[in-house]
Computed example of a mutant assay.
Amino acid sequence: MILSRQAIRSHIREKRNQLLSDTQHQAGLDLIEQFSTLAELSNSTHIALYLSTDGEINTTPLIEWLWSQGKSVYIPVLHPFSKGHLLFLHYTPTTPMTLNKYQILEPQLNQTLIKPVLELDLICTPLVAFDSTGQRLGMGGGYYDRTLSSWFKSKQGAKPIGLAHDCQHVDSLPSAAWDVPLPKIVTPSKVWQWES
Rank of each mutant, 00 (worst) to 15 (best):
M1Q: 13
M1N: 14
L3W: 09
S4A: 11
Q6M: 11
A7H: 10
I8Q: 01
I8F: 04
R9P: 12
S10D: 09
S10A: 12
R13C: 14
E14A: 15
L19G: 09
L19Y: 08
L20R: 13
D22L: 15
T23C: 12
T23N: 12
Q24K: 14
H25T: 01
A27V: 05
G28R: 00
L29D: 07
L31S: 04
I32L: 09
I32Y: 04
E33R: 01
E33Q: 03
Q34M: 03
L38P: 02
S42T: 01
I47D: 04
I47K: 02
I47M: 00
A48D: 02
A48F: 00
A48M: 01
L49T: 14
Y50E: 05
Y50H: 12
T53Q: 11
T53N: 13
G55L: 07
E56L: 05
L62R: 00
I63P: 10
E64V: 01
E64Y: 04
L66G: 05
L66R: 08
L66T: 07
S68H: 03
S68V: 08
S68F: 00
Q69A: 13
Q69S: 09
G70M: 00
K71V: 02
Y74H: 10
I75G: 06
P76G: 10
L78Q: 05
P80G: 08
F81A: 14
S82F: 12
S82Y: 11
K83H: 05
G84T: 04
L86E: 01
L87Q: 07
L87F: 06
F88G: 03
L89Q: 13
L89A: 07
L89K: 02
H90P: 07
H90F: 08
Y91M: 05
Y91E: 06
T95E: 02
M97R: 10
M97Y: 03
T98D: 05
L99G: 04
L99M: 12
N100L: 08
K101V: 12
I104Q: 08
I104F: 05
E106G: 14
Q108S: 12
Q108T: 15
L113K: 08
L113C: 09
I114C: 01
P116M: 00
E119S: 05
D121R: 08
L122S: 11
I123Q: 02
I123K: 01
C124P: 05
P126N: 03
L127D: 10
L127W: 10
A129I: 01
D131T: 00
S132W: 08
S132G: 13
S132I: 03
T133A: 12
T133R: 15
Q135E: 07
Q135M: 11
G138K: 09
G138V: 08
M139F: 11
M139C: 06
M139K: 06
G140A: 08
G140C: 10
G140H: 11
G142E: 13
Y144L: 07
R146M: 03
T147M: 09
T147N: 06
T147Y: 02
L148G: 14
S150R: 02
K153T: 03
K155Y: 05
P160R: 06
G162Y: 07
G162T: 04
L163I: 03
D166P: 02
C167K: 06
C167W: 03
Q168S: 11
H169Q: 15
D171S: 14
D171N: 12
S172P: 04
S172C: 13
L173Y: 10
P174W: 00
A176Q: 15
W178A: 08
D179P: 13
D179K: 12
V180C: 14
L182S: 11
L182Y: 10
P183A: 04
P188S: 10
P188L: 10
S189F: 05
Q193K: 14
